[in-house]
Amino acid sequence: MSTLYPVTVTVNGSPVTRHVEARLSLSDFLRQELELTGTHVGCEQGVCGACTVRLDGRITRSCLVFAVQADGGEIETVEGLSDNGEIDDLQTAFHERNALQCGYCTPGMLITANELLKKNPSASRAEIREELSGNYCRCTGYHAIVDAVETTGRQRQGGAK
């Protein structure tokens, strides 16, 4: 049996400790050890973006970090961001605009889009497309996603004024 390493992380605000193999990716750690299955795995090579989470405040591909490396870190997943309401407006816009079909890319897409809107709520359609260009969606053709992100950005700007 391979060596097990202790990992203590704060996930969606709650501290958790597990003992895992060094080779366990953060995405598999979240999905298998913590049963947070909202983080999806699509390629395991950092390309598709479905596994995007927030690690220590930065959006990160959880398939490209080993769980042991996240030790001591703070992780936020789509479940946590749903529970605390941070992305509620974006979720509502995605729903109303049908900016998701199969939903597999959606958690990563929401987390990435939220990051963009935090920096630049007035992002143009071209800027939105650029920022989302690391997240695969095979269903929507992106148009509806861009619509939903644009709409949410406008709402957030309005709210800030």
């Binding site: 983080t39 749903s82 979720q91 998701l100 939903g103 929401l110």
Partner: peptide
């Protein structure tokens, strides 16, 4: 009518059940 799809809020919150789950 463009009714928003019922039953997909769970996908938006990462609460779907894909076979891998």
């Amino acid at each position: 009518r463009s009714v928003p799809r019922p039953n997909i809020r769970r996908l938006l919150e990462g609460r779907g059940t894909y076979t891998d789950d």
